[in-house]
Amino acid sequence: MFDEGVMRSHTLELRRGTGTLACLIELEAAQYGYGLLENLTAAGIDIDGNTLYPMFRRLEKQGLLTSQWNTQQQRPRKFYQITPAGQEVKTHLLAEWRTITATLDRLTTQDSTTGEYI
């Protein structure tokens, strides 16, 4: 019988890098952590709360995000936004993502008569 744990670990591995890209795309406009988490979940991308903030820290340390506390609202929240360096990385990652998708599409499209990939 197929082990579901194996399937889960492969899926997680596949999604790991896409979380960073999704965050960079979403943070075009400043957002706070929980708000971003909700938006991503609504869009169909599941990121755990315990990986989101460490990821923010890493991206901020690398200069791809900036952050600022907003104390105007009822509850103080830290807002994150993409930097110009982050934009550059996002563009590169998106291009890479599209290349991978195109390659996988090509590899999975097989000619039924010759058996060759078309």
Partner: peptide
């Protein structure tokens, strides 16, 4: 502060 906010 941030973690407390997220969990709450």
């Amino acid at each position: 502060d941030e973690l407390h906010g997220l969990i709450t």
